[in-house]
């Protein structure tokens, strides 16, 4: 029996020694630094890329999940690049330019489409979102809600980790928005330490609620769920950062921002496949360009946020959409 297995093994090994095909139709790898499940931002990335690929006959796309171990992403990207199989590697994460640098250097013919990042590396086409604008709007809504509840003007922000965009853009933007409503307002910032520990998220949220915070915005991946649970138990409000989250926990999520990652991915990939994408020229987009938005047409939003604050908020939002108000996104290299 074991001899048979060994023979089978040998045959298979020999059969699989065929050389790789390196030419063929355009093919794309979508690399997810994490998992698709439970990460709307990555699901949108994947959806947008696939939509663009579907429009080009013969083009292929493969989605590869990289898992949560950040230390391995570099190795994985390098392996994808070294295979020469993908004309484009599409991914999204502010850390990706850094992580893929070695691979880009070693395989200069590999092109990378990196969303949610800003880099002038000639191998990359990057698109960054103006997080300051987005979190500013959240801050405005948060401040209005807190005032409505007669609660102190303190908002909570629970992040998966600290990183430059978070520290330099999102947190200050959040506070600015709050101060626009209540000048004495403050933001309480907490860090989970990773992107998946829901229990820790719940713990941190509860701590904030005990302090009197009435509105909290979680940006912590899988840990968001814990924050929702704690908010539901305490009857507090949650602002959902970058996707429509009203249905995730009805009655708890009061406002949802939106990063149109699927639109961005679709357009970037479409350009790449058509050959019209410019590399080495990072783009920054916000409300005016149509890649950031706020979900105000949801019946839940209308129901939960009283008329007065709602109208004030929508006015601010309109200014951003029209480009009348613009905020500069600090770039940290």
């Amino acid at each position: 029996m074991s001899k048979l297995l060994v023979a089978l093994m040998a045959v298979l090994i020999l059969a699989s020694c065929a050389p790789q095909a390196s030419t063929g139709p355009a093919s794309l790898a979508v690399f997810i630094p994490g998992t698709l499940q439970g990460s709307p931002i990555y699901e949108m990335l994947d959806a947008g890329a696939r939509k663009a690929v579907a429009e080009v006959p013969g083009a292929i796309v493969k989605t590869i999940e990289g898992g949560f171990n950040q230390a391995q992403w570099g190795e994985q990207i390098a392996t994808l690049a070294s295979s020469g199989e993908y004309r484009f590697i599409v991914t999204s994460n502010p850390a990706m330019p850094e992580i893929a640098a070695a691979a880009a250097k070693a395989y200069p013919n590999q092109k990378f489409l990196i969303l949610e990042s800003y880099s002038d590396n000639p191998s990359y086409a990057t698109l960054a979102y103006n997080h300051r604008e987005l979190s500013y709007l959240h801050g405005v809504l948060g401040g209005l809600l807190a005032a409505e509840r007669k609660a102190p003007a303190v908002l909570g922000l629970i992040a998966g980790q600290e990183y430059p965009d978070m520290n330099n853009a999102i947190v200050p933007g959040f506070e600015e928005g709050l101060k626009a409503v209540s000048p004495e307002g403050k933001v309480e910032f907490r860090v989970v330490g990773n992107w998946y520990d829901a229990a820790k998220g719940a713990e941190l949220a509860k701590g904030l609620f005990d302090q009197g915070v009435s509105v909290v915005m979680p940006i912590s991946g899988g840990a968001n769920q814990g924050v929702l649970t704690a908010a539901k138990a305490s009857g507090r409000a949650v602002l959902w950062y970058d996707t429509d989250g009203y249905a995730v926990e009805p009655g708890v999520v009061f406002g949802s921002g939106r990063i149109l990652q699927d639109k961005a991915a679709y357009e970037l990939v479409k350009k790449a496949l058509a050959g019209t994408l410019e590399y080495g020229k990072p783009q920054m987009v916000g409300f005016q360009e149509g890649y950031l938005d706020y979900v105000t047409d949801s019946p839940t939003f209308v129901q939960l946020v009283p008329e007065g604050p709602r109208q004030k908020f929508e006015a601010v939002l309109a200014d951003f959409r029209s480009g009348k108000t613009q905020l500069e996104m600090p770039l940290s290299r």
């Binding site: 850094e98 990183y163 940290s332």
Partner: peptide
């Protein structure tokens, strides 16, 4: 490393 996007 405060300037890094990775936890490192």
């Amino acid at each position: 490393a405060a300037q890094s996007m990775l936890i490192q």
